[in-house]
Design a binder for these strands. Sequence first.
RNA 1: GGCCGGAUGGUCUAGCUUGGUAUGGCCCCUGGUUUGGGACCAGGAGAUCCCGUGUUCAAAUCACGGUCCGGCCA
Length: 490
Amino acid sequence: MSKEKMKGISVKKSEDFSRWYTELIQKAELADIRYNIKGLVPYRAWASVSIKRMYDKYEKCLEKKGHLPLIMPTLIPERNFLLEADHVEGFSPQVFWVTHGGEKKLEERLALRPTSETALYQMYSLWIRSYNDLPFKRYVSGQVFRFEGGDTRAFFRAREFHWIESHDVFATEEEARQQVIEDMETTYEMLQDEFAIPIIFFQRPEWDKFAGAVHTYAADALMDSGRVLQLPSTHLLGQNFSKPFNVTFMDKNNEEKYGYITCYGPAISRIYGAMISLLGDDQGLVLPWDLAPIQIVIIPIYRADTKELVLEKARELTHLIDDLIDNAYIKLDDRDYVSPGEKFNEWELKGVPLRIEIGPKDIENNQIVAVNRISGEKIRVKQDELNNYIETYSENFTKLLKEKYSIQFESQVEIANTVEEVKKIIGENKIACTGFCSIDLDGEPCAEIIEKEVKAQVRGKRADAETHKFEKCVVCGNPAHETVYVARSY
RNA sequence: GGCCGGAUGGUCUAGCUUGGUAUGGCCCCUGGUUUGGGACCAGGAGAUCCCGUGUUCAAAUCACGGUCCGGCCA
């Protein structure tokens, strides 16, 4: 094997992650960054199939929990946009504006939606009339546009990205709070159980919440580098939007009330980026069983004199598996102009979970060779045990992947009592747990000091139960009202 | 915002100082031989050398302006 001829990834993931990621995207044909608008990226077939499956799983999960789909316009008139002050302030710098129709300048600028609150809620105001319409739970799947400055990177940070946003209206604040908890559960079900990404939820500090929200709860993925990556967030909007958009309902006493709103925004494209970064290895892509475009690839191995025999047997095998197994797409790679070695490498690069090899020796012994994408282990399986083998393999594959990458949150965390200790812990690629004066706006100066001294962010306080308690704020020394986590993020 | 680099077939790249027919690998295509971990031989295709202006008999190369990309600093 000569290095120069490698079609595979030429660097180790552990040695140069950034280059590894770029090569993975190019060589596994996931996306093409040559599109000539910065930050807008065509996703190629191999990634698009997985992303569609992720959407599918997510949408089914949301529907099971009482959400119905909507399809909404991509453009939002500027005047809708101006209705909620914090929201405007937060999003204005990031909006792409449509200013012309043909050569004619528009009377009013139209925003390419950066998120859909201001498009949806004026309609909600018309659709919701009484308490009988509540709870009102809807979701929109589609893309949004945000004019991000600085670096863009395929899947992770783009100026157009693909997501689902659900927007729910309730009669009481308590129900809205319950919805936020449901959204967090949904995130665990999807990201951890289906996509094998370990996460933890934080309540974000006031200075870091969604523009217009009362509270923001955001999932941080725990990457093996010790850094965290922000993934889906769910927001308690309270009545911040229902008032300006007049989302009201008649209650049982014939009184008009403002609804309590929540919104939840899993960015599927970003989750895909996190997933392939986390699960991939030096060979290339590794995908959960259900998300791989092809689950099983069959590679015939022959010489000139055995070609017909092997190919016939391989075709037979392909049909057999196709008939017996219903949770898998199977491909027979019968290209005769590519050597087996190259096929092995190619399908590993593309992350096909199970490879089956069949050659003359196997036919003689009534067996096949099965190769595990996670471990690389090769084992021989008798033909009459094949059905069982594949069934077990497919059931265990994602589970094994999850176990391999599961990171116990507590094992990543160390306690810090001084800023120096925070610095040391971050330097060791861990997450620091420490006392903090406040996660309201009055705590922001302390967070800025952390950011500057440690070059890491106060991610917030745990959304679930907290067991650690501190006397003093690690920065200012005032009484610690909160226990927060400090981490470096991507 | 400041400073510094860079831009050449699909991709990576040589050439630029000292102006004169643009180099090579990979990918791709054709024919043949191959096939249990990245095969080989022969042939082929593919480039407004980022854009504009200037200097010149002659510009990828020199000068000036612009665009885009990357890096470092604030």
